[in-house]
Structures are given as C-alpha cells and as structure tokens.
Design a protein around this nucleic acid. Structure first.
Length: 334
DNA sequence: TTAGGGTTAG
C-alpha cells in the first residue's frame, strides 16, 4: 500500500475515482485510519466514496464509526444513498441494535423504489431477526424475487436466534428441496437451532451428515454448538472426548460450555477438572471463575468457592457487573 | 472504486 500511496502522490490528474480506489484499497487491507485520513482530505466526494468508507468500517467491525459516517451523509449531504452503502449501514444497525435507523433505511428503499436484490434482502431479514422481529424477516424473505445460499443461511440462523428451532430445520429441508447446496455457515445456523431447541438426535445427525454427505469439515463454531448441546443434555463424558479429539485447540468458550453442563448436571468431579483447565486457558475472564465457583457451591464445597474467589483477587480479575435493571438502579439511574 | 449469512455461561 505504500507504493500505491507514492504513485498516488505523484499522479497529478487525481480525480474522485482515484481517491476512492485508494481508500478502498486501504480498507481492504484493514488500514482504516489511513483510509479515513484520505477520505477527510478528499476535495470532492462521490456517493461511492461515502459507501466505500462505510463498507470499510463495517467489514472491519467498526460499526460505531460506520454509523456515525452514515448519519453524516444522511443529514449533512444531499448525496444519493446507493445500495452498497445501505446494505453496510443496515449491517451496522443490526450489530448496534439501531432499530429506528434500520426502519428509516427501509422506508428510504421503499420510497425510492429500490429492488430487493439478494444482498439487500438478506441484510434486511438479518436486521429484523437481530431486532427480534422474526415475522418481518420472514416477510422480507417471502418478498425476495431471488434467494441464494446466503439468504437461506441467514434465515435459518435467524430462526435459530429467535428460538424457532423446528422452523429452522424445516427451512433447511426446504433449502435442500430447492436444490441449493448448504455450506459451512448454513450448518452453523442449523446446529445452533438444534442447540437452542435441545434437539440432541437431530444435532448429532446433521453434524455427521455435514461431514459424510456434504464433505464439509467442522470448524470450531460447529464444535462449539455440539459441545454446548451435548453438555446441556448432560452427556458430559462424551463432550470431553469430543473436545479432546477436535483438530483445534479448544478455546475458553468450548471448555466454558462443558463446565456449565457439569454444573447443571452435577458432574462435580469433571467440573473441577474442567474448571482448572478453563482458568488456565482464560485467566482474565471473570465468568470462568464464577462457573467454577458455582460448581463448588452446588457441591456445598465452600472452601473451594473461597479458593476461587481468592485466586480471582490475587490475579486482579475484576467482576464485571451486568447491564441489567437492578444494576442501573444501584448506580442511582432509575 | 462500493454490498448480504455464523453457536456460546452465572
């Protein structure tokens, strides 16, 4: 990118398109701050310049800055808002839970008679699902003239997220009927559905089918779903075997799921062992200490609880208070 | 020169 910068500096006939291309290049190399500098320096910005910058922020998971820029273009310019910009702005809305902004984009699209392409439609159904309005997601899905793997995967994951496990499975079966081939992410959604619904047999079947029928090798996310599902179902020994046979280094979330399962099902001996591993993997994560302390508490082993508390203090791990109503009141903000 | 989908605790 340095070379691109030098060439750009020497190039005398710089137009908006050159500036925008360079910004896009910086964004795709995750050099967002440099991209933003150039964006701010640009003498004239096109609608594509704005969208490239917003897209860049969203793709690099800087949703707050994406939203800020989106609001700027919306309120302080008379620029046309193009589809790419709106799709990315919608993604930012989904992540930030900015419901009103997302609704505004919807009305903008309707009043400007934009067609629902697969990208826009998929972004919309995802937005509504993340806001908990799964019926609106389904409405968007039904209105879409074309759908593809990503649309179906988004719908399956959305149903799973909102607790409609059986409908998610039904959607998966319909997807197969419409001759679309599921991919790795489709299965993350499907296994998440099985997990949320406690559907152990279905989960096991789809996990196996994924490998044997669809030739997709499981990622840590797929294992994460299975570990959580089997742990909650009390199959803790089986889970430990699964974790140890994984071709990845298990992370704290994986061990944490098993620890929680042990706690719920009273598998105390395993809880203690897993709890120790969890603290080694994530020594700064306050929730892991709570998990182990809870397992000790269930056993009535209060010396264990006290030991975990002491370790937390010694290592300087702070408890993070949840942002619930009780805590808000405690802070004097009713 | 620009766009969409991913599970997880007390």
């Amino acid at each position: 990118m340095d070379l691109a910068d030098k060439v750009f500096a020497k190039y005398s006939n710089r137009n908006t398109m050159c500036w925008t291309s360079l910004i896009s290049g910086y964004c795709s190399h995750a050099l967002l701050d440099r991209a933003r500098e150039l964006f701010d320096e640009m003498p004239e910005k096109s609608d594509v310049s704005w969208s490239v910058m917003v897209v860049g922020y969203v793709q690099n998971e800087r949703h707050g800055e994406a939203m800020e820029l989106f609001l700027k273009v919306k309120f302080f310019t008379s620029m046309n808002l193009n589809r790419s910009l709106l799709v990315s702005a919608l993604r930012a809305c989904s992540t930030l839970g900015a419901f009103e902004e997302g609704r505004w984009i919807h009305s903008y699209i309707d009043s400007n008679q934009f067609e629902y392409g697969v990208e826009l439609g998929t972004a919309f159904l995802d937005f509504y699902a993340k806001c908990g309005l799964i019926l609106l997601s389904k409405e968007v899905f039904d209105k879409m003239p074309n759908t593809d793997v990503m649309t179906w995967s988004a719908m399956i994951a959305s149903l799973a997220l909102n607790g409609y496990s059986h409908s998610a499975i039904q959607f998966f079966l319909n997807m197969l009927r419409s001759k679309l081939k599921p991919n790795s992410i489709t299965f993350v959604g499907l296994l998440a559905a099985c997990n949320h619904g406690g559907l152990v047999d279905e989960g096991m079947t789809y996990f196996k089918d994924m490998v044997t029928v669809y030739k997709i090798s499981p990622s840590i996310e797929h294992y994460g779903c299975m570990v959580d599902l089997l742990s909650q179902a009390g199959q803790t020994k089986k889970v430990e075997e699964m974790i140890l046979s994984m071709p990845f280094e298990p992370d704290g979330a994986i061990w944490g799921s098993l620890l929680h399962g042990c706690f719920v099902h009273g598998d105390i001996e395993l809880a203690e062992r897993v709890g120790r591993v969890v603290l080694e993997v994530e020594p700064d994560h306050c929730g892991r200490y709570v998990g182990l302390a809870n397992a000790y508490a269930v056993m009535g082993r209060w010396e264990g609880v006290a030991k975990v508390r002491r370790e937390m203090e010694e290592r300087g791990v702070a408890m993070i208070a949840g942002w619930n109503y009780t805590n808000i009141c405690r802070l004097g903000m009713p």
